[in-house]
Amino acid sequence: MQIFVKTLTGKTITLEVEPSDTIENVKAKIQDKEGIPPDQQRLIFAGKQLEDGRTLSDYNIQKDSTLHLVLR
């Protein structure tokens, strides 16, 4: 499925993911596309910070959802 990741600069990254993918996995995909190390990434969805060990389906993230990427 496709999800979107919006950065603070207003750029939107499109990712191909599975509901069973972990947040860690998603961060690795963002690193592949953007070169941002996962340890600098914070992903936010519906006002919640997403934890590495959980999956997209744990957070009820569905296709065409938009996550927000904050760098630390």
Rank of each mutant, 00 (worst) to 15 (best):
Q41L: 11
K33T: 11
D21P: 00
Q2T: 11
A28S: 08
L67M: 09
T12K: 09
L43A: 01
E34A: 11
I23K: 01
S65I: 11
P38I: 13
P37D: 15
S65M: 06
K29M: 12
N25K: 06
D58G: 11
I23G: 02
P19H: 12
E24I: 05
G10Q: 08
E18T: 12
Q2W: 06
T66R: 03
T7K: 10
L69E: 01
K27D: 00
K63E: 10
I3E: 00
R72H: 14
Q41R: 02
I36Q: 02
T14Y: 03
G47I: 02
L8V: 15
L50D: 00
S65K: 03
D32K: 11
L15G: 00
K48E: 11
L8S: 06
T12H: 15
R42P: 01
Q41P: 01
G53D: 05
P38M: 15
G10V: 04
V17G: 02
F4R: 10
D52L: 08
G53E: 12
P37S: 13
L71A: 09
T66K: 04
G53W: 06
T22R: 08
L69D: 01
D21W: 04
Q62M: 08
S20K: 05
K29P: 00
I36S: 04
K11M: 10
T22D: 07
N25M: 12
I44W: 14
L56F: 04
E24L: 05
L56A: 03
L67Q: 01
P19K: 07
T9H: 09
Q40R: 04
G35S: 08
R72E: 08
N25A: 09
L43T: 01
D52T: 12
D32H: 07
D32M: 08
P38N: 13
T66G: 03
A28V: 12
L15H: 01
D21M: 05
K6A: 12
K29D: 12
D52N: 14
Q62E: 14
G35I: 03
K11R: 05
L56S: 01
Q49G: 13
I36P: 07
T12P: 04
I3N: 00
A46T: 06
K6W: 10
R42T: 15
